[in-house]
Nucleic acid binder design. Structure first.
Lengths: 340, 340
DNA sequence: TTGAAAGCGCTAACAT
DNA sequence: ATGTTAGCGCTTTCAA
């Protein structure tokens, strides 16, 4: 706000009108004559008048701003989701405040506390992997803040949740591995408190059950932070005598470690270990070997979340129901699970 | 702002105080007794009082908000830069409004027009690849809006620019290719109107000159939009009899196409073509072959840009000088340029 | 068709 | 140490 901005008052003086008249003219009110409107518009244009959004917000109790709260942005799913969110928002005249939790519930709580100020008209949320308690979310939700979840949801909050078919995707991933001959399927988790993580895992497990390899199913909980730690955890897992011969990675960031460790240990992919990962990276097809992926409809999920949120903000008739909107993911088979 | 938020007035009534007293108490003013402060704080806490930021903005002509305007977020450089920007901003109590230009100058202009409203206290900008004119930027800048560029700068605007050593990086990349035996080095551009692109290209060219392979230097302008188009352009280039035997890709998104085309045409990397790309992707080391990269200090550039901008907002003594702050990139040699 | 005045929530003079 | 008042820029009754 360093801009020495022109105000309605100044416009009014320039035009020899009242501020009220100018305000109405700018909003194209029917109670202002066409001639006056023209005059006002012309001068406004000339003086480069842009209304002060905060004055308007104060009056209207609407900020035309939404908050996007998510764990991080250096993940292709979230990047693409933001693209979808922003596209819709800008088109509808909304501004996007970005908040990153960096997977920390403390940061998430601090952000939610701030959002109680009324800085935004609604919130798009994908919770941190540390988030187990939900008081901070409920507290804001109970103040009638519209909240729409995408991807990482909270079942307990009764609102719209945009997800992909996590359970089925997990199931399909594991089933694919089993059909490729895997007997010992491992699911690499990012967090045990995330619904989507657990659904994917349960899908895997069920596939193993249905195909009689349940006792081969294992589950490795990795960290969402330090890659060092994960490297060691994965390596230890792959050194076990009954190491997995098939891996489902719940997030794309695990794949680099998996590949490097297999290389270090002399395990061939897919010969010795087959790998599927949830990922939206464009470069998966040029990995060594090309990576079989579950690709989430990231952009579309962002778009849908954004448009539902904004609709609920603008139409009081459109309340946010407790509802799951599911957009399916796609399994794309590549060399990391077949061939060679 | 759907939150039925509590106001200072209501606090004051609850406490039997004036709004002014409450306001001062909340800001820990010395002219309020300790006892009263305690009382106020207690009630504020109890009633979950959070000040209305827009009322404050209106009074102070400060929004504690910065805008980040950049081409896209689905690029690891920008993702990491946002991380850096957001970290610093949140720590200093600033909010981040995210705007994506999607490489369109029209969108960029529309955003800048809006920013004249005083919605933000400062702007971090990485221009679109279409941006040739700069009137929209100058116009805002002349209104005393602090603007700091990062990565994709505008020389003409006299302010701080955070970049990496683009020229040297281009030089190093090409020199590395030449030392690996390349005779025909091509630079794949994302835009001819971006300084950073041209500096990288000029660096390449100079390296070719210095090593007597100037006549082998070529330059291919690709699109920042449709990947289809790029695929065909690159393919045509690689089908030429005097096709390059070394490629410097100015942005990471070109690498997938390059790899796929070489595969399609039966060109081995690095045997027939060596590839270096500017990239911050974590997965470059597991590509087939692992990709030699120029890695930009993305996070650090974001951090620095953010902290300089905020400093200039807060300290009137700290004016933004016309200055280049350069953080060097790193060349990491991998299999796409050597071996096999 | 236009204008005067009040008020959104907050703070900074200026009283008291 | 606390209260009164005016005003940030805008919109919206209500009056003219």
């Amino acid at each position: 706000m360093a801009t020495g901005n022109i105000t309605i008052k100044e416009l009014a003086k320039e035009l020899n009108l009242s501020t009220a008249a100018v305000s109405k003219a700018l909003r194209d009110s029917h109670e202002i004559s066409a001639a006056t409107k023209e005059r006002v518009m012309a001068v406004a244009e000339k003086l480069n008048y842009v209304p002060n959004p905060y004055a308007g917000s104060l009056r209207h109790r609407k900020s035309k701003t939404i908050a996007v709260v998510l764990p991080e942005v250096a993940d292709s799913f979230f990047s693409l989701a933001i693209n979808g969110i922003e596209s819709v928002a800008i088109e509808k005249g909304y501004h996007v405040l970005l908040y990153l939790t960096h997977e920390s519930i403390l940061k998430e709580e601090a952000i939610f506390k701030d959002l109680a100020s009324g800085r935004v008209d609604g919130v798009l949320l994908s919770i941190s992997s540390e988030t187990d308690g939900i008081d901070h979310i409920r507290s804001l939700f109970n103040r009638n803040m519209p909240i729409v979840f995408f991807d990482r949801t909270c079942e307990e909050i009764e609102t719209v949740k945009i997800t992909t078919n996590d359970y089925e995707s997990g199931y399909k991933a594991a089933e694919h591995l089993i059909k490729c001959g895997c007997k010992r399927v491992a699911f690499f988790s990012i967090s045990n408190s995330l619904q989507i993580n657990n659904k994917r895992r349960q899908g895997c497990l069920q596939a193993c059950r249905d195909h009689d390899v349940e006792e081969g199913f294992s589950h490795l909980l990795l960290s969402n932070r330090a890659s060092e730690v994960n490297y060691q955890l994965i390596k230890a897992e792959m050194l076990k005598p009954d190491r997995p011969d098939g891996i489902v990675a719940s997030v794309e960031k695990f794949t680099t470690d998996i590949y490097l460790i297999c290389r270090e240990l002399g395990l061939g992919i897919p010969a010795d270990v087959k790998v599927v990962s949830f990922s939206n990276l464009a470069s998966v097809s040029i990995l060594d070997p090309a990576l079989t992926t579950i690709t989430q409809p990231a952009f579309e999920m962002g778009e849908l979340a954004s448009s539902i949120l904004i609709k609920s903000i603008e139409l009081k008739s459109f309340a946010l129901k407790n509802e799951n909107r599911v957009i399916p993911s796609t399994l794309t088979v590549r060399a990391s699970t077949v061939g060679k």
